[in-house]
Amino acid sequence: MTHHDTDRPDGRDTSTDPTTRQTPVITLTGVGDTLAAIPHLLGFHPTDSVMLLSGTQRGAPLSRTMRADLPPDHLVDVVAHDITASLADDDVSSALLVIVGGHDGCAEGGAASGGVRGGDGSAGELPPCARLVDALRRNLAVLGVTEVAAYWVPEIAADVWYRSYDDATRTGVVSDPASSVLAAEFASRGYVTYGSRAELASLLAPDGESELARRAELIETLRADVVETWPRAARVAVVRDALSAAGEGDLAFSDRQLATLAIVLADVEIRDACLATALPPDSDLAFAAASLWGELTRALPAPERAIPACLAGYAAYMGGNGVLAAIAFDAALDADPDHTLAGLLDRALRHGFPPRQLRPLATHDTVGLCAGEWLRDSA
């Protein structure tokens, strides 16, 4: 499967949320600094990946950072089109292409001439994946983006040599990702940069098969009783209690509690009300909700885990963590391929819709789940 990720854009829209802190302005000076920033922009250290960093004008903040797995040769044109298609409405004027890795199964040779410098700065072989770089440039040119730089690096780590696809003399070393100003800023705001996408995805990995099977059986046993005899107010109270517990750091739910939550969240009005917990993204409620949805995504069997995974994805999307949102939507659609809301949100994310355009989804709390100060009062 080819993963297509967007960044966790700290430049999220704050125009309607005065409580959100302003995004700091951090200037990246040179290719080495920019490469070192990529893991923090994505939320993980990419391997065997192609990145496209786009800008709307010189000196302005990056408008988008996108990543995809390096494709096999026969899918180069498809992946190049998929990566660039979402930029059509962005008024992009410049782009930076970065290939990480690619020694195995990636097209070799291409744009550069006269060789490039090797790992010690000496002349060496052409960078891999040049055909992919060429395909991306063709697609960007169709969009009117002709200012495109392209670099290859075997991995993003301190003192690793990078190479240009255009100029054999344009080479240098990557700055230390761990000691950059961007790393310090992200760490101060509670962001974690993971060692790999798989490590990040493990945050939502399901529990063991025996546990899931036991809970699936319990869900079937309880479903009729909860749906038919519990009034909606009682079902809303179940979610409120779980959110309060998550807000206190208590995620040790019993199998019966987990099964009940799975049944309650299947109520579309309650599910839609839960979307409202994602805003504002820096609130205590949003953090508590994100913890709860993550726990339920891990703890519930398919297809029930699709709903909390979708809610986890929406929370991550609104919080600017595009990669975690993509992972959550993948989990939701894996659990239930026909889950309509997860499918719509996944497509919106992959087509580059900014979070502000999806905020109206968080305005349909018809059951009063987020009314008042109940979360604070219950602490």
Rank of each mutant, 00 (worst) to 15 (best):
M1P: 01
G11A: 14
S15G: 12
T16D: 12
T19K: 12
T20A: 14
P24N: 13
P24I: 00
P24W: 08
H40Q: 13
F44W: 10
G59S: 02
G59Y: 10
G59M: 06
T65K: 04
P72I: 14
H81M: 11
D90P: 02
A95R: 01
L97P: 00
I99S: 01
H103R: 11
S113I: 14
L126H: 13
R137M: 03
G144V: 05
V145S: 00
W152M: 15
V160D: 03
P177L: 02
L182Q: 04
A184N: 14
E199C: 13
A201K: 01
L204N: 02
D207F: 09
E209C: 01
R214C: 12
I219C: 00
E228R: 10
R235I: 07
G247W: 11
T260I: 10
I263R: 03
A276H: 14
A278M: 03
S283A: 08
S283Q: 06
D284P: 14
F287H: 15
R298S: 05
P301C: 15
E304K: 07
L311D: 01
G313W: 00
G320I: 05
N321C: 08
N321M: 07
A326P: 00
A328E: 03
F329P: 00
A348E: 05
L349G: 05
L349V: 09
Q357N: 15
T363R: 13
G372M: 08
L375H: 03
R376K: 15
D377G: 06
